[in-house]
């Protein structure tokens, strides 16, 4: 029952190439917008770098030292030229290479995002499936409200409540910081609260999406047939229906990843998590041009990559989706 063109190798390769090619103008646009955006926003990093009693001449000299005295267009092309050579420049604030700053933080944001995605899927999918099976019961109603609340609560508030409850009141978990690698007990304990804060919102959306997608699936004939054949109900729902109901959920996970990176900016600041989000906040406050560009560029690349990955996942999960 294969549809034409389905598992043809060349089309898969060209599919990936096409997707990557589409990503290039997106990245160029992101770099350009960020480059211009931060320079057009009021605020001057040089003023932060100099002592208050510095004179105008000091300002001019420092600007020259940093190459910020050149025309904007020239700075822009210089930035591209350097970037194509793999050089993202130096942070104005720390004067360390931007690559190094990013590299030291990427693993921490990645582990936080990963744990958050897993947590949100672990919460969202079972709740969604169960809500669909028990449609319009008390459970469904309660979960609907819970999902609504989860999506609506701002993470800075939720994070603070978690800290007050789990760190201050109960004393179960550390309030902030990354105490070690995630596979150690202290490390695992320290990632729970920030990841949970990030996950709650996504879990809400995921449970709703799973529910509606499952509802669609379990009304279909083959499910009725499966039930009529006498298969165990749990097997019908959790295996046959879920596999088909998950496709829109996976798309949603891709979209959620972008939100997670955005949410990480807040969650990392509240929980003093040493990731990119915290770095981004500091860079923006300081108008650290090179670092802001670096962080946003990295965010953009990862979102593009994750969505590419998701597109490819469809092909494997659902043979009906073709690469054509």
């Amino acid at each position: 029952m294969l549809l034409p063109g389905c598992f043809e190798e060349p089309s898969m390769t060209s599919y990936i190439i096409r997707k990557v090619l589409i990503a290039i103008p997106v990245l160029i646009a992101v770099v350009t917008l960020v480059f211009l955006g931060i320079r057009l926003t009021p605020g001057d990093p040089v003023r932060h770098m100099l002592p208050p009693d510095a004179s105008e001449a000091d300002v001019t000299q420092m600007r020259k030292h940093l190459g910020l005295d050149q025309p904007l267009l020239q700075q822009y092309f210089l930035y591209w030229k350097r970037m194509l050579h793999g050089d993202l420049g130096n942070s104005l604030r720390t004067r360390r290479p931007v690559w190094g700053e990013l590299a030291s933080r990427i693993p921490y944001t990645a582990e936080l995002a990963l744990v958050a995605i897993i947590l949100s899927a672990l919460m969202g999918v079972p709740i969604g499936v169960y809500s669909a099976i028990r449609q319009n019961t008390l459970f469904d109603g309660v979960m609907r409200v819970a999902a609504f609340i989860g999506v609506s609560f701002p993470s800075f508030w939720l994070g603070m409540m978690f800290i007050l409850l789990f760190a201050l009141k109960l004393g179960w978990l550390p309030a902030s910081g990354r105490a070690g690698p995630i596979w150690t007990l202290v490390g695992f304990r320290s990632i729970l609260l920030p990841a949970l804060t990030l996950a709650i919102g996504s879990a809400g959306s995921i449970s709703r999406m799973t529910r509606s997608s499952m509802l669609e699936v379990i009304r279909q004939d083959y499910i009725t047939v499966a039930k009529a054949k006498g298969l165990r109900e749990s097997r019908v729902y959790w295996k046959h229906s879920l596999k088909n109901g998950l496709i829109p959920v996976i798309t949603l996970l891709g979209i959620q990843f972008g939100f997670l990176l955005g949410g990480a900016v807040i969650s990392e600041t509240i929980f003093a998590w040493p990731g990119l989000g915290q770095l981004a906040v500091k860079a923006i406050m300081f108008r650290d041009y090179a670092l802001i560009q670096g962080v946003v560029f990295f965010f953009a690349i990862s979102i593009v990559l994750v969505n590419l990955l998701i597109d490819l996942t469809y092909v494997f999960i659902d043979p009906r989706v073709t690469t054509s």
Partner: peptide, 18 residues
Amino acid sequence: VRPIPDASTRLVELETGG
């Protein structure tokens, strides 16, 4: 020396001995 950007979190850390 630990950086803890959020003022409320810093205070909770002090109260809990972090």
